[in-house]
Nucleic acid binder design. Structure first.
Length: 275
DNA sequence: AATGAGGTCAACCGCCGTCTA
DNA sequence: CTAGACGGCGGTTGACCTCAT
């Protein structure tokens, strides 16, 4: 017996968002800030479910979203965190500034999960003296993996101990301003493929209507955008450390975990991620 | 050139935990 | 204490795209 739907769904728009809808949503959040998703659509003049608005904002329109390909470092981190946390996409996303849980989930399902599945299968074949063709994950050799169980990913991960802390709300990490050479600022390297150019063009139109947002995307200061949009309350606190510092710090923590072995329990490390 | 298979990713759905009256 | 509202999460879907045949 589930809860009643968040909205009646009668007469509501579904499917891909139009540029006009995006504009309405952005303008509303600009004026009133986030929250109150249930009542937001009505007030903003949108024929959308509140959840749909939230999702659109969180996964696409938010100014701090980092677009473009997942970097090898980010991929490494996703793999490591997934091996620790399992499918806790929001937690993993919380450690990847500018990435959304949906994006990471999609990336895992379309790239990594499959890769590790193949790897695991081949690993099992190898143990049986099977194929020599090992298509393991493309893990950077500069990182220390020697303490990693070769079966720590993919299907077998389900049998390894995955820390599953009690579900709780996780306050987002401080979101750092990306520098002008990556992410959205790279322009063409959006997550929209060339085939979606039409859609992209539509949203370019939205951006033309929103100079603040365009300034941000083209290298302006996100804090300007946020403050001008009136959404400066948490979770949008753009503060130090920088993205690179944060990634380094997480790697460092992980390395320490690997080295310390018995000195630092896995649980306490994972718990530290949840803080 | 046509077409079918497979990949990608935005969006939806249902459930859960927390908050509040 | 309870029930409903709300926000958030992970799983899934389906439209659209690319690529191989």
């Amino acid at each position: 017996m589930g809860r009643a739907p968040c909205c009646s769904k009668v007469g509501l728009q579904k499917g891909p968002w139009t540029a006009k809808e995006d504009t309405l949503l952005i303008n509303y959040i600009r004026a009133h800030g986030e929250g109150h998703w249930r009542s937001l659509p009505k007030k903003a003049g949108l024929l959308r479910c509140g959840k749909s608005c939230r999702l659109r904002w969180m996964n696409y329109l938010r100014p701090d979203i980092k677009r473009g390909n997942i970097t090898p470092d980010e991929e490494d981190l996703i793999i490591r965190l997934h091996s620790l946390l399992g499918n806790r996409w929001s937690l993993i996303a919380g450690r990847l500034p500018g990435r959304t849980d949906n994006e990471i989930k999609n990336y895992w399902n379309s790239h990594l999960g499959k890769r590790f599945k193949i790897n695991t299968r081949n690993d099992q074949n190898n143990r049986k003296g099977g194929s020599e063709c090992v298509r393991g994950p493309k893990i950077s050799t500069q990182k220390n993996y020697k303490n990693q169980d070769s079966t720590a990913y993919g299907e077998t991960i389900m049998t390894t101990k995955v820390h599953l802390p009690k579900a709780m709300r996780v306050s987002p990490l401080p979101i750092t301003r990306k520098n002008s050479t990556d992410g959205m600022a790279s322009g063409s390297s959006t997550s929209l493929g060339d085939g979606n150019k039409g859609v992209l063009d539509d949203h370019e139109e939205v951006l033309k209507c929103l100079p603040d947002l365009r300034d941000y995307i083209e290298g302006g200061d996100s804090t300007d955008f946020v403050s001008s949009y009136g959404v400066c309350d948490p979770p949008y606190q753009f503060s130090e450390p920088t993205k690179d510092d944060m990634l380094d710090k997480i790697y460092e923590e992980y390395q320490q975990l690997l080295k310390a072995e018995n000195q630092l329990s896995l649980d306490s490390f994972v718990d530290s991620l949840l803080i």
